[in-house]
Design a binder for these strands. Structure first.
Lengths: 245, 245
DNA sequence: ACTATCCAAATAATCGATTATCTGTCAAGG
DNA sequence: CCTTGACAGATAATCGATTATTTGGATAGT
């Protein structure tokens, strides 16, 4: 389901976050499957931030042996979703106001930089991918009453943002942005089940995308920065209100 | 030995890359020790870039069992030094001109940004740490004939750069910069055994550090950017010359 | 010759059991 | 009382053996 985050972040053959996978989206090893399931469990808030992960319980819950469990957890460490300490085990990464603010700031810096590079370097195929991702996202409704629509929307939203910057030709940068998006999505999934009333997010996305394919560098970058910033502000408010910190 | 790269990159208690560790620098678990040894082996070029890592051989070489071996390798994936594919195993990340250029570009962007933030936010203790790191670095000679001096210099150099930006108050950003530095060091260790004749690297470091503690934002950032850029250019030349790509 | 298919050796992944480490509790000594 | 140390249960780390997958080479069919 999740667009197959390539293991390390060295240049890979598979470039754009294509969702057109040839069947075989299936993760092969138990370790990989676990990584996906755990990632989803953490991002969705099912596994509470900051909580300890007891290996024995997890082993029983998922009905697997220790080796693949550790394997899966190890990958989430790369994602920044899990922390680890020798002989003390694993725990779900904490959330905090400071963490959220850093994520927002870094997204503003990195994602905007990556967008600029994409506009500078992206080819026609990139443009097409952007428009497709935009269309699919805008055609998808979020209905707070039906969790599966939220999940679907998140997936497409993530894909839109990654596609926007996928033309930058910088695999490491893409990897970093992908991590930040992951971390950010956790906050959104937990604290925002619907868009704040004063925003038209679809339109924001459209403005960014159209500016991007028109190569209007300053406009598109500015729109993206504002978009990220607004989301950060919303999340901060919700975190302050509902947060049990 | 290596300044204890904290597992995940969430806010940790231990902030500055202090080298004053209280005894107990020792990694506790076999997995951790392996991670260190493998990291050193890769960065030093002992393990050739792009080569496959045969688990059985590695198991015998290091005289350990599979579990901690995989554990150690998993951590190097986070570092970007090892790549992994389901059922195909691990391989040392490849090096390439494009990869080097991306690393250099991202260091210029992120490290400079982090330095600016450090100057904005860093306290007196940060200033002190910077001056100490500078002093220790400049007091250490690089002698191409004695590998242990190179290793020592690399360690202090890395620490200097990390200390410079350690005041930025952004753990994730620090983590990213640390990764980039790691990746960059591999190129330097493999391709540069001594400083290029037309540079006075000690002086470059001094200028950056002094600008930093004087809070001369534009000057320090400019010096750092040039410093990174020059290193990138040198490495590119050596890679083109000696590289066996 | 060329491709496709099947085998066997090589390699990776997983399991269950064992060993090492930690954590909290309780008793002895100050 | 408070501290210290030792014990036991809980938890993490490691091992050796087993199972699953891949890979390269041989074979058969076109």
């Amino acid at each position: 389901m999740v667009p197959h985050d390539d293991g390390a972040f060295a240049p890979t053959t598979e470039d754009a976050p294509s969702s057109s996978g040839f069947l075989d989206d299936g993760k092969n090893t138990i370790g990989s499957q676990l990584a996906s399931r755990l990632r989803e469990a953490i991002i969705s808030g099912e596994l509470q931030a900051g909580s300890k992960i007891n290996l024995d319980k997890a082993r029983k819950t998922f009905n697997v042996s220790l080796s693949p469990l550790r394997e899966g957890l190890a990958r989430l460490i790369s994602d920044g979703l899990v922390e680890f300490e020798d002989n003390r085990g694993y725990r779900v990464s904490s959330i905090s106001l400071a963490n959220l603010e850093e994520i927002t700031t870094l997204r503003e810096e990195f994602e905007v930089f990556a967008l600029r590079e994409s506009m500078r370097l992206g080819d026609v195929e990139w443009e097409g991918n952007v428009m497709r991702a935009l269309h699919r996202l805008n055609r998808t409704e979020r209905d707070a009453a039906r969790p599966e629509t939220l999940e679907r929307w998140e997936e497409l939203h993530r894909e839109f943002h990654l596609t926007l910057i996928s033309g930058c030709g910088k695999p490491i940068l893409l990897h970093f942005c992908s991590l930040l998006l992951n971390l950010n999505d956790r906050y959104r999934r937990v604290f925002l089940t619907r868009t704040s009333g004063d925003r038209n997010v679809s339109q924001e996305h459209s403005e960014i995308a159209q500016g991007a394919v028109a190569r209007d560098l300053d406009y598109a970058c500015d729109m993206l920065r504002q978009h990220i910033h607004r989301t950060g502000t919303n999340l901060r408010n919700h975190l302050a209100t509902k947060g049990t910190l």
